[in-house]
């Protein structure tokens, strides 16, 4: 399957089709979230989304909170970042026990371009088909997704940009 070019556009039409199949959903709040359109191109190493999803610069401070937040990015569950792990003695709940499932993110901005990092955050499965890493900005193609998450993405577009703005500093 070729994925370069314009990515799937999720519009209200998809939402309506879903509602027609499952009328029980019609009344609840789980409507398909409208996703920002993005374009995938080739980066130096992997595919990339070079343009910001929102056009608004990310906030690295918010990004750090989102990376720690277990209900949001929860990046620390799998990735180690030495500079942030050093804060564990002051705030263990937020920074201690970073995981070892994914590669450490130290120097990640030196290994990938901003666009490639955005691609991985948005939908890692498009570049690493077997990865355990969730797609943080995708809301279709799931099996047995739990009701309250239906049609939603793990992160909002601006939240992706917030995390990215911090990742960019890990050179």
């Amino acid at each position: 399957m070729k994925l370069s070019g314009i990515a799937t556009v999720f519009c209200s039409f998809v939402g309506l089709a879903g509602l027609m199949i499952q009328p029980a959903l019609a009344g609840d709040k789980d409507k398909m979230m409208m996703l920002v359109k993005y374009e995938i191109s080739d980066g130096p190493a992997i595919k990339a989304i070079n343009k910001s999803l929102t056009g608004k610069p990310g906030d690295p401070k918010k990004g750090e909170d989102l990376m720690a937040n277990r209900k949001k990015g929860n990046c620390f569950a799998c990735h180690m970042i030495s500079s942030l792990a050093a804060k564990a003695k002051d705030n263990p709940k937020k920074y201690a026990d970073m995981g070892e499932i994914g590669p450490p993110l130290d120097g990640v901005a030196g290994r990938y371009t901003e666009g490639e990092l955005r691609m991985m955050l948005v939908d890692s499965h498009k570049v690493f088909p077997d990865t355990i890493m969730p797609s943080f900005y995708r809301n279709t193609g799931f099996t047995r997704i739990k009701g309250k998450f239906k049609g939603k993405t793990v992160l909002k577009a601006q939240e992706v940009e917030d995390i990215l703005s911090l990742l960019k500093t890990f050179k």
Binding site: H125, I132, P134, S135, F142, R144, I145, F149, V154
Partner: peptide, 15 residues
């Protein structure tokens, strides 16, 4: 399965 899109194997076989 699920929004995090993981299988049993991801955690318990691979890692």
């Amino acid at each position: 399965r699920g929004q995090l899109d993981m299988s049993c194997a991801h955690c318990h076989e691979k890692y």
